[in-house]
């Protein structure tokens, strides 16, 4: 299978500085979560995202460049300047952020991992007590009529 993509542009330093400014806006951090800048969402994690989908590169570069040229980086300004590219750039940077291990650890989220069903607790399995009201109500289906219409 051929995937019809080619990464044809590179994120240069100025563009990346603009993306850092955008990250400050969209991923500022909370009391619990680190900021996007501190985990490098605009750096190597972004590069991984762009390797996974090179079709995002033009939007990311356009938005990063616009942000770098802007004195005050706001989403509203960027939307006016580069339109729909903003959504794609936000998606790319946010995806990058939620790959960073520090973020997953802060969330208490392990990521996509194995949890064999053999390890499921009793609370995680159905029980006949839980099902009892359903069984007690009995059949709810409409049976096949005796003759076709």
């Amino acid at each position: 299978m051929t995937i019809n993509d080619e990464r044809t542009q590179v994120v240069d330093d100025q563009t990346r500085s603009g993306l850092a400014a955008l990250v400050d806006v969209i991923l500022p951090g909370t009391t619990r979560l680190p900021s996007g800048r501190s985990v490098g969402a605009h750096e190597s994690w972004l590069d991984r995202v762009l390797d996974a989908d090179p079709r995002l590169v033009p939007a990311v570069v356009a938005v990063g460049s616009a942000a770098a040229e802007s004195e005050s980086c706001t989403l509203a300004d960027l939307v006016v300047r580069v339109g729909a590219h903003v959504e794609s750039a936000v998606f790319a940077l946010t995806s990058a952020y939620y790959i960073a291990p520090q973020v997953l650890e802060a969330l208490g989220y392990p990521g996509q991992v194995r949890r064999p069903i053999s390890e499921a607790t009793a609370e995680e399995r159905y029980s006949e007590d839980l099902l009892a009201p359903v069984r007690e109500r009995g059949a709810i289906y409409v049976p096949t009529p005796d003759s076709a219409g």
Binding site: I3, D51, D53
Partner: peptide, 26 residues
């Protein structure tokens, strides 16, 4: 893509269920 950290990016692009997004040679 299921075991890859970039899974969310891949399912929105080359592994999307939407053939118009996926746009692979198949």
């Amino acid at each position: 893509p299921s075991q890859k950290p970039e899974r969310d990016v891949l399912i929105a692009s080359s592994w999307s269920p939407d053939p118009n997004v996926r746009n692979n040679s198949w």
